[in-house]
Computed example of a mutant assay.
Amino acid sequence: MDMTTVSDSGLLDTLQHEVAVFARRAEQTRLGGVGQVRNSMDRAAYLLLNRLDKEGPMGVKALAASMGIDSSTVTRQVAPLVDTGLVKRTSHPEDGRAVVLQLSPRGLSRLEEVRSSRRQLMAELTQDWEPAERETFCALLTRFNSALSARMAVPPGTDTPPAS
């Protein structure tokens, strides 16, 4: 079903183009921040470390589910973080056979360094914005990302997300 009308197709063309440009530029710069920290942590590592910081230690399956990705992807992405000491593997407190991933003190320090650099970059990019414009942009970008997540949850061959 085509949800566009003649009046908004031009706006939607502009939107899809600007999203494509944003995605390319974000990947080129990795929105890595400023100074020596710039481009120093890839997107997957940042998102995994950030999730472990926000939600605490968890198993691979729980981490994958909370990020909306496959367990094998998490396992592959976590391996270098463990190798470099940013993430620790520990035994589950209730089931010693299960592995729990936990942000290490070094990982937290590194994450804070990258967050600070990225925060500085966001401040520079939006320095001439009013606070209300920043809030609106954040709210709309969050809403857009939520819609993308919901769309990705749609089973192939259907048009609508599953009922929640």
Rank of each mutant, 00 (worst) to 15 (best):
I69G: 01
S109I: 03
V78H: 01
D8K: 12
P131T: 04
G96S: 09
E55A: 14
G107I: 02
A98P: 04
F144A: 05
D70G: 02
M152Q: 11
S104E: 06
S117P: 02
M58P: 06
M1I: 01
S91K: 10
P93T: 01
E18H: 00
K61D: 12
D70Y: 13
T84E: 07
P93M: 08
A23M: 08
R143F: 14
D2K: 09
A62C: 11
C138T: 03
A26R: 09
V37R: 07
G10D: 11
R43H: 13
H17S: 12
M58K: 05
T4E: 07
M3A: 15
V114I: 12
S7K: 06
A62W: 04
Q77G: 00
L63F: 14
G85R: 05
R38G: 01
R151I: 09
S66V: 14
I69H: 06
T29W: 13
S149Y: 15
W129I: 05
T29V: 07
H92L: 09
R118W: 12
L125K: 10
V21G: 05
S72F: 14
V87N: 01
A139H: 09
R151Y: 13
R38W: 03
E112K: 10
G68N: 03
R110M: 04
S146T: 07
M67S: 02
V37K: 07
Q102F: 11
P105N: 05
L108E: 10
G35I: 00
E130H: 14
S7Y: 09
R110W: 07
A163L: 08
R143K: 06
A153R: 12
A23N: 04
S66A: 11
R118G: 08
E112A: 02
E130T: 12
T14G: 04
L52T: 02
